[in-house]
Design a protein around this nucleic acid. Structure first.
Lengths: 197, 197
DNA sequence: CGTCGATGTCAACGCGCGTTGGCCTACAGT
DNA sequence: ACTGTAGGCCAACGCGCGTTGACATCGACG
């Protein structure tokens, strides 16, 4: 805990440039197609620098995919506005920061990225859902359903670029998707259907 | 149309084995990580055979990703059951056939796969939605919203494997997601929010 | 001024990939 | 039995990749 004084190193700018370039490349190309060489070229340094600072491609991705949803405290949100609040929050978060798109693209082929995605949505989201007043016994399930809609929106809008979803503006999307999330958060658990037999 | 008589060629079995292996590999690994060599090994033939029959990796993928949603005629479905019907249909379709998962995984990094995905959901799905009785002027938008939930479900269940979504069984999922789809299909278009000014 | 670690470049490595072309082999048509 | 052809294998190619280690340069400090 008594680390060296936080004196700025000369390499901090380089590190940051690498990270910025990495996020862009991973977001645009996914894990496999994004190359260390391309990231280095974007950051205008030698590929071996990336290795020196981040150890490996996996290490670079781990650093680039560091991400916090920065979810608001749902205990402070009027219960009837939970869905709309969350929908707007996610849309704003995505439009501003490509990290989640990078993570989403990478998660299709990279197990580490999928694992991190699970951690974010089973951790940060589920915690926020619990704080919104949901029964802790069902919070994980509700968070999973919310994630399915939120990530589906991100997938169709930013990755697949399905035209109708791309063309809607954030306000309209929030108006459509907000009630879905609201229902996933608040609707009583449906009775288990009669099991087949 | 006056092709050679449809006499079975000796190579048909090989072609089919390649296609089966390709679908599995693309579904499990995505486009980039799935290799021609691995597909050939699975099909127990030489990699050069894959090239001979499908021309290139892109050609193989194009053949392996041939897909029809086989949507039911929604004009025959009672209007109040549209959502549940569609939800159940998609879940059954996915559990039985890995092709869509292959397409989904590949769509994250392969432009051709994303294009095909757009075609399927802007074509087959939008057409079915129109036949369900939706106003043709809004059918594309409604189909896009349905796609966002359906694909989000597939993403979280089959690709990211988010535990709460994996653990729910198809009946429970249909009970949760059906009403969402129902609402996307039938709810009046919300009034445009006051534009920022 | 001399030294030494931090910062950065350069050239090369081994690997697995998609892809190619040449060469066997078995069988259908005569 | 002879031959043409479809089906299949093998060895190799060139490429771009992640990664490595040797070498150059800069800047702080004695």
């Amino acid at each position: 805990m008594t680390g060296p004084p936080a004196r700025a190193r000369r390499s901090d700018a380089t590190r940051a440039a690498i990270l910025r370039a990495a996020r862009e490349r991973f977001a645009a190309d996914g894990y496999d197609r994004a190359t260390i060489r391309a990231v280095a070229a974007d950051a205008q340094i030698d590929p071996s620098m990336v290795m020196r600072y981040y150890g490996s491609k996996e290490g670079l991705f781990a650093a680039a995919a560091e991400f916090d949803l920065h979810l608001p405290d749902l205990a402070q949100v009027p219960p009837e506005r939970l869905g709309e609040t969350l929908a707007r929050h996610f849309l704003r978060r995505w439009e501003a920061d490509g990290t989640l798109v990078a993570l989403l693209r990478a998660a299709s082929t990279n197990p580490g990225a999928a694992e991190r995605m699970r951690g974010i949505f089973a951790g940060q989201l589920a915690t926020a859902v619990t704080r919104s007043g949901a029964d802790p016994a069902t919070a994980a399930r509700r968070a999973g359903l919310v994630a399915s809609q939120i990530l589906g929106l991100a997938l169709t809008r930013y990755v697949i670029r399905l035209p109708p979803v791309v063309e809607l503006d954030p306000d309209e999307l929030a108006a459509w998707v907000g009630p879905t999330i609201q229902r996933y958060l608040t609707q009583p658990i449906p009775p288990a259907p009669a099991s087949a037999g």
